[in-house]
Every structure is written in C-alpha cells, then in structure tokens.
Simulated assay, not measured.
Amino acid sequence: MCRIHPSLKSPHDFSTLGDYLAYLRKTKNYTLQYVVENVAAAITRNVLPDRCSLTRSYLSLLEAGKFDEPSPHKLRALAYVYGIPSEILMQKAGYLPDKDMQYPASSVIPEELSELQPNEQDLLNDYLAFLRFKRKNHCDCEKEPLKRR
C-alpha cells in the first residue's frame, strides 16, 4: 500500500547541500534540537560513532551553506536521522561522484516504512541493494532458497 507524496523533491532539485538539508528537516517537521538529540541518542546506543556528534549551531551553519566541506561523519549522522542513504549527502557535498546514483523513489512512500526502526531500514536498504545487483547482473540467486532461522 503506497501513498503518493508529490511535495517531496529529489536531491537534484536543490543547488546546495544546505538547501537540501534544510528541506529534509523542515519536511519532517524536525527542529534543529530534535536532530541533535536524535544523533546523540544514536551515539549513546552505539549506532553512530562519537565523531558523528552535532550541535545546533553546526547544523544551522551547514544549512545556511557556511561549510564548503562538511564532515562526512556529520553527513552520515544526518542521513541516519533523516532516514536516507548517506551516499546521497556525500554526493551532494561533492565527496562522491554523481554518477547514475539511483535515488529512492521520493514521490512514493510506503506507509509501512515510516514505522521501521533504523536497523530495519538498514536491512531493507541492504536487501534492495541485493535486488538491484541481482537484476543488473542477471543473477539467479534463488536456485537454492535460504534457510530461515
């Protein structure tokens, strides 16, 4: 069951990383403090390393475009909070080449995805990457079914 969400935009629709980050935060109705607290909680749970910590001022300046080369660790933390692949932010910041990156279908959001925990989102992203690999390489990886645990 999917719902159409026409107001969501692609990363390509934004000229700067800061504009895209501000858009993501505002679309999710997150405050700067909420983002900072969620990153801190993820660090406490050992989901993110300590070097991913953020402050409200750093995030505010990042959104305002005051950092030419933001820390990849900070980008990873933001991707975690916003529930997007970190590669998108790394590309937008210029750390990765923008070569045929397949962004998630940002106009269709399955309702069930909004209730997934971050580790479940990671597992789903891994599975989707596997399916893309399988399709790209015409792999018949289902000859022998995996055993359930």
Rank of each mutant, 00 (worst) to 15 (best):
N29V: 04
N29L: 09
Y30V: 00
Y30I: 02
T31V: 02
T31A: 01
T31F: 01
L32C: 01
L32A: 01
L32Q: 09
L32Y: 14
Q33T: 13
Q33Y: 05
V36F: 02
V36I: 05
E37S: 08
V39L: 01
V39C: 02
V39T: 09
A40Y: 00
A41R: 11
A41L: 10
A42K: 03
A42L: 05
I43Y: 03
T44Y: 10
R45S: 06
V47I: 11
L48G: 02
P49Q: 04
D50G: 02
D50H: 11
R51Q: 12
R51D: 13
R51T: 11
R51V: 13
S53D: 12
S53H: 13
S53T: 14
L54H: 07
T55D: 07
T55Y: 07
T55N: 06
S57V: 14
S57R: 15
L59F: 08
L59N: 04
L59V: 13
S60Y: 10
L62A: 13
E63G: 07
A64W: 02
A64H: 07
A64N: 11
A64C: 04
K66V: 08
F67Q: 06
D68K: 15
D68W: 05
D68Y: 07
D68H: 10
E69H: 14
E69C: 09
E69A: 14
S71I: 06
L75Q: 04
R76Y: 11
A77E: 03
A77W: 03
L78I: 09
L78D: 01
L78Y: 03
A79D: 02
V81W: 03
Y82A: 03
Y82S: 02
I84R: 05
I84Y: 04
P85G: 03
I88F: 03
I88M: 13
L89S: 04
L89N: 02
L89D: 01
M90Q: 11
M90H: 13
M90L: 15
M90S: 07
K92V: 06
A93N: 06
A93Q: 06
G94D: 05
Y95D: 04
L96R: 12
P97R: 15
P97V: 12
P97T: 14
D98T: 10
D100H: 15
M101Q: 11
M101C: 06
Q102R: 14
Y103S: 07
Y103C: 09
P104I: 09
A105C: 10
A105D: 15
A105Y: 11
S106A: 09
S107Y: 12
V108W: 10
V108N: 01
V108H: 10
V108D: 01
E111L: 15
E111G: 11
E112P: 00
L113F: 11
E115A: 12
L116H: 02
Q117H: 11
N119C: 03
E120L: 09
E120F: 04
E120N: 05
E120T: 09
Q121I: 15
Q121H: 06
D122Y: 07
D122F: 08
D122L: 15
D122H: 07
L123K: 13
L124D: 01
L124W: 10
N125T: 08
N125P: 00
N125A: 15
D126W: 08
Y127I: 11
Y127S: 07
L128A: 10
L128H: 09
A129V: 06
F130P: 00
F130D: 05
R132Q: 13
F133S: 10
